[in-house]
C-alpha cells in the first residue's frame, strides 16, 4: 500500500461538553493510514463521545477534528460519511424491521446513484457467508453475532477509508468475538483504517497496532499495542490480572 503523508484522522485539543458536563478534555489522537487503533477505558470515560464526535453527532466546543488533513468538525454527518468515514455503532443498531439486504443498502446510502452495489454485496457475502443466507430476513430476527456481521457489512458498503467501531465485541459469545476480530484484521489488511472503542482490552490489544487509554475524558496513556500489553497499570486495570492472595 502506498503510504501517503499525514494522518488519516486527527483530534487536536478537542473538548466536548454536554451542558455543564465536560466530557473530552484536550484530547489528541492521531490515527495513521492503514492502522488499527484501539481506544480503551472504563465506563463513562468519553469513548462513545469520541465516536460521536468523529461522526458529527456531538460537536466539539473547542479544538478540531481532521480527516485526511481537512477540518471536519463543522461538517454535517452525511458529508463525513461521503468523505469515507463509516460507523459500526454500539449495540449494532441495525434497522430491525428492514431486511438484511436493505440494511446493507442503507450502508451505501451516500454512494452515487447507479453505483455498482452488486460487487460490494459480493464482497460482504464473501466475508460473511452467513449474511448471504439471511439476506431476505428482517434484521431484528438475527442473533447478536449475525447482527454484528451485518453491521460490519453495512459499514463496508459505504467504501469507507476509516471504520469507527463502538464496542464490536459487546454482547457476543466468545466464538463470535474471535470471528469478528479475525474479520476486522482481514478488512484492515485490505486497506481500511480501523479506530475501535473496546471494553475487551485483551482482544483489542491482540489485533491493534496502537492504543490510547482514556480516563475521565483525558488520554492518560498511549503507545504500541505490544508495549501496552506489558504495562503493569494496563495489566491490572484492563487485562484482569489482579494479584489474588491465595486463600489459606
Amino acid at each position: 500500500m502506498q503510504r501517503e503523508a499525514g494522518e488519516l484522522l486527527e483530534f487536536r485539543d478537542v473538548n466536548t461538553h454536554y451542558g455543564d458536563l465536560h466530557v473530552l478534555k484536550n484530547v489528541n489522537y492521531a490515527i495513521g493510514r492503514g492502522e488499527i487503533v484501539a481506544l480503551l477505558g472504563g465506563n463513562a470515560c468519553g469513548k462513545s463521545t469520541t465516536m460521536k464526535t468523529i461522526m458529527g453527532v456531538v460537536r466539539p466546543t473547542t479544538g478540531s477534528v481532521l480527516f485526511d488533513g481537512a477540518a471536519i468538525e463543522r461538517l454535517p454527518t452525511a458529508e463525513r460519511v461521503r468523505r469515507g468515514i463509516a460507523p459500526v455503532l454500539e449495540a449494532r443498531r441495525l434497522f430491525p424491521r428492514m431486511t438484511v439486504l436493505e440494511n446493507l443498502e442503507m450502508g451505501a446510502y451516500t454512494r452515487k446513484r447507479g453505483a455498482d452495489l452488486a460487487a460490494d454485496l459480493d464482497r460482504v457475502y464473501e466475508l460473511f457467508p452467513r449474511v448471504k443466507e439471511r439476506r431476505t430476513q428482517l434484521a431484528g430476527t438475527l442473533s447478536g453475532g449475525e447482527q454484528q456481521m451485518v453491521a460490519i457489512g453495512r459499514a463496508l458498503m459505504a467504501h469507507p477509508r476509516l471504520i469507527c467501531m463502538d464496542e464490536p465485541s459487546m454482547g457476543l459469545s466468545p466464538l463470535y468475538v474471535e470471528q469478528v476480530f479475525d474479520i476486522i484484521q482481514q478488512i484492515n489488511r485490505q486497506g481500511t483504517t480501523i479506530f475501535m472503542v473496546e471494553q475487551n482490552a485483551a482482544m483489542a490489544l491482540s489485533i491493534a497496532h496502537r492504543a490510547y487509554v482514556l480516563q475521565t475524558g483525558q488520554v492518560v496513556l498511549s503507545g504500541g499495542a505490544a508495549e501496552l500489553r506489558e504495562n503493569p497499570a494496563i495489566r491490572e486495570a484492563y487485562l484482569g490480572e489482579l494479584q489474588v492472595a491465595p486463600t489459606a
Binding site: V57, A78, R93
Partner: peptide, 11 residues
C-alpha cells in the same frame, strides 16, 4: 426505526 443510526448512514 432509528433516526440516529439513519443519520450516521448519511441520511
Amino acid at each position: 426505526q432509528d433516526p440516529e443510526a439513519a443519520r450516521m448512514m448519511g441520511v
